[in-house]
């Protein structure tokens, strides 16, 4: 099983970096890395992600490692179609890079590899969604060339509508 990189590793070397499809034995290291980044441990979630994205067509779970030794990053994406009228397009919904190994182009390599996978699936657009205050990832995706798209995310507490499903509503 790949290990997460020890904190002291911060080499600028990218020659040994490899991006590949995740294996079952990577899930623990991905969960560890994600826990380091987000502060929330969720192994069961990553095991489920591997089942759903690591083994199916048009779904991609890629990892970056250092010669098969230390896991340095991961990215997940898939092709989605016709959600709110959108033709098939690529979606990236998770990206993580070892904080001690930033500036080694790991994120760029993962993003490029994901774009290759999505392009081979026949889509010509890739999308993602980010928290408004997630400056780090927002700046990263911008630096890769992503711009604001034609969709806007909306949300509200479901409690505000609970029990009102049978009421008449003049706006439909």
């Amino acid at each position: 099983m790949a290990k997460t990189a020890p904190a002291q590793r911060n080499s600028a070397d990218t020659a040994t970096l490899a991006v590949r499809t995740a294996k079952g034995s990577d899930v623990g290291a991905v969960a560890d890395l994600d826990a380091r980044i987000t502060g929330i441990a969720k192994l069961a979630y990553w095991e489920d992600m591997f089942e759903r994205y690591g083994k199916r067509s048009n779904r991609y779970f890629l990892v970056a490692d250092d010669c098969g030794d230390c896991l340095l990053g991961f990215i997940l994406g898939e092709v989605r179609a016709w959600e709110f009228g959108s033709p098939p397009s690529g979606w990236i919904f998770a990206l993580g890079v070892d904080p001690d190994c930033r500036l080694r182009k790991i994120g760029s390599r993962l993003f490029a590899a994901m774009c290759d996978c999505l392009a081979e699936s026949g889509v010509d657009t890739v999308r993602t969604m980010l928290a408004r205050d997630d400056g780090l990832n927002m700046a990263f995706f911008r630096s890769q060339g992503m711009m604001g798209g034609p969709f806007i995310q909306l949300e509200m507490p479901v409690a505000a509508k609970r029990g009102r499903g049978t009421e008449a509503d003049s706006t439909g």
């Binding site: 927002m138 700046a139 630096s143 604001g148």
Partner: peptide, 22 residues
């Protein structure tokens, strides 16, 4: 305003020049 601020805060000078180059 918050969307505008988040957008502007995510674009570095380097990124803007990449947009120009593209």
């Amino acid at each position: 305003n918050e969307i505008a601020a988040a957008t502007l805060a995510s674009i570095t000078l380097s990124t803007l020049l990449k947009i120009v180059d593209r």
